[in-house]
């Protein structure tokens, strides 16, 4: 099977200047488990485009680093 990688506009935006390297609050509460840490920077990002725009990540982030947009296809 031949595969390609497509660019996707993702709903969960992380402000890296506010994201704490040792904190995993958003990662732990995401029902779809789409958030992970970038191992190089320690900052969270949305790895899988499977968002229910439900907001626990945004609400539970202690520094307000996360903004959830409505997915582009629904916006």
């Amino acid at each position: 099977m031949a595969l390609t990688t497509q660019r996707v506009d993702v709903p969960v935006i992380v402000d890296e200047s506010k994201c704490l390297e040792k904190c995993v609050a958003c990662i732990e509460v995401c029902p779809l488990d789409v958030l992970v840490k970038n191992p190089d920077t320690g900052k969270a990002y949305m790895k899988y485009d499977e968002c229910w725009f439900c907001l626990p990540c945004e609400k539970e982030c202690p520094t307000g680093a996360i903004t959830v947009q409505i997915p582009f296809l629904l916006r």
């Binding site: 995401c30 029902p31 626990p56």
Partner: peptide, 11 residues
């Protein structure tokens, strides 16, 4: 997921 925010009433 995580029971703190899971299921139909996650929020």
């Amino acid at each position: 997921a995580n029971i703190r925010r899971s299921g139909a009433i996650a929020m």
